[in-house]
Simulated assay, not measured.
Amino acid sequence: MEKLRLEFVVKKSMDDPKSNVICLTSITNNNRTFLMPEEFQPAKLHDTLIKTQTFQKVKTTLQKRNDRRQVWFTLTPEICGTYIDEDGNMQFKGYLLEESTQETRTLPSTSGISEEALTRILENFAEKKNSSKSDNIKKLTERIVLEKFNNKMSNVSQWMAIFESECIRVGIEEDTKKIEALRLFLEDSCLDWYSSRLIKCTVNSEWSTWKENFCETYADRGWSPVRYAMLFKYRQGSLLEYALKKEKLLLEVNKSMDNNTTLIDLIATGLPNFIADKINRTSLKETKDLFNNIRGLEHLVNKKNSGIKMKGLENKIKDRDGSYKPCRICEKENKGNRYHSESLCWYKNKNNDKQKRDQIKTVNNSELETELNEINPKN
C-alpha cells in the first residue's frame, strides 16, 4: 500500500503569537516534495489527518515551538481524495501544491527563517567559535597542576615532562594549543623568551621545535643546584618546613630519586644531630614517616630557642616597677634604648680604652719634657 511522508512543525499561531500550533509544511510522494502554503499549514484545516491515530502520536510528540517530525501516513481513499486529484497532481482544497526543486528551499517555509538570515546566523556562530578559542585554552589550563617556570628552576627537562603530561590529561593535544598554553606557565624573563620565539617561529610551528629550544635555553649544566639541594641544612624555624623544602629541592634535581632510602637519608642528615639521633631510622619506610617523627620533635627546637632568648634577658636590669631599664651609657652615646647591663656595655669598654690611651700619651709627653730639661744646653 502506498504511503505519503508528511512533515509537521510547531509554529506560532497567526492569531495569537504567544500560542503554538502544529502545522503541515510539506508532503512527499514518490521522492517528490511539495510545499504547503502558509495559509493552509495549520493542522486544524486538515480534518482527514486529525482523525487518524498517527496524527495523535504527532500531537503528543511535538510540544515545543520549532519541534518537527517527518511521519508516514498510509494513503487511504480519504487521504488520497484530499491531497491527490484525479490526474495525480498534489493539491489541497483545489490549490495545486508547488514542488520543491532544491532541498535547501524547504528551510524558509518549514522553519520561518530565510536563507539570508540563516547565513548570518552561521557566520556569527563561526566568529564566536573562533573568539572563544583563547577562552577555552584558559579554562583548560586552569585545570593544570604545575608551578610556573622561571630562571630559578633547576631541572627544565623534568618540568617540561610534567607540563606535557598535564596537557594530555586536560585534553590539550594539538601543537598550536600547547604553544598557547606554554605562555600561561612562564614568568619573569621567560616571557621575553616566549615573545622572541613567537616572532621567529609563530604559533603555527611544530611543538617539538619550541620544546627543544626551551630546554636548550634553560638547561642548567652546572653543579650549583645539585650542590645546594644536597647540602641544604636546617638553620632555624620549623623542622617540618625545612624537611618539606629539602624534599622539594631534591626532587627538582632528580624526580626519580629513591623515596625509601636516599631521599630520607638526605633530609635527615640536614637536621641537627640531637634531633636526628632521636629518630629510629629503621622505622622509616617513606618520607611521610620521617615528617611525622619530625613534627613530634618540634618542641625540642622551640625549647632551645626560648632558652637562648631567656639567656639574653639575664643581663638586663629591671627597674623598681619590674620593667627593664635601658642602658644609660648607650643613651649618653645617642645609640637608642638598649637593654643590657652597663658593666657589659660595649661603649663603656670602648671609652675606658680611650681613656687609657690618652693617659699613656700624657705620661709619655711628661717624661719626654723632663728628659729634655735635664739635657745640657751646651751640648
Score class of each variant (00 low, 15 high):
331 E>F: 05
174 E>N: 09
90 M>P: 01
277 D>I: 00
372 L>N: 12
167 C>D: 02
207 W>R: 07
257 M>C: 05
156 V>N: 02
185 F>V: 02
361 K>M: 11
90 M>A: 04
316 K>F: 01
369 E>S: 13
228 Y>V: 10
127 E>W: 00
350 K>P: 00
130 N>E: 15
174 E>C: 04
343 S>I: 10
220 D>N: 15
124 N>P: 00
4 L>P: 01
45 L>N: 12
52 T>A: 04
62 L>M: 07
76 T>F: 00
258 D>F: 04
47 D>S: 13
31 N>M: 11
101 T>S: 08
243 A>K: 02
320 R>E: 15
111 S>N: 06
6 L>N: 00
77 P>S: 11
86 E>G: 13
330 C>W: 08
286 E>Y: 14
169 R>P: 02
312 G>V: 03
144 I>D: 00
83 Y>V: 04
121 I>T: 12
79 I>K: 03
92 F>D: 05
329 I>A: 06
65 R>Y: 09
225 P>D: 07
126 A>I: 07
188 D>I: 00
95 Y>H: 13
190 C>S: 07
272 P>K: 09
155 N>K: 01
97 L>R: 06
317 I>Y: 11
219 A>C: 08
367 E>H: 11
160 M>F: 08
316 K>A: 14
246 K>E: 02
68 R>Q: 11
104 T>F: 13
350 K>S: 14
94 G>K: 14
88 G>N: 04
12 K>V: 00
196 S>R: 15
146 L>Q: 01
22 I>N: 06
277 D>K: 12
136 N>C: 12
279 I>Y: 03
228 Y>W: 07
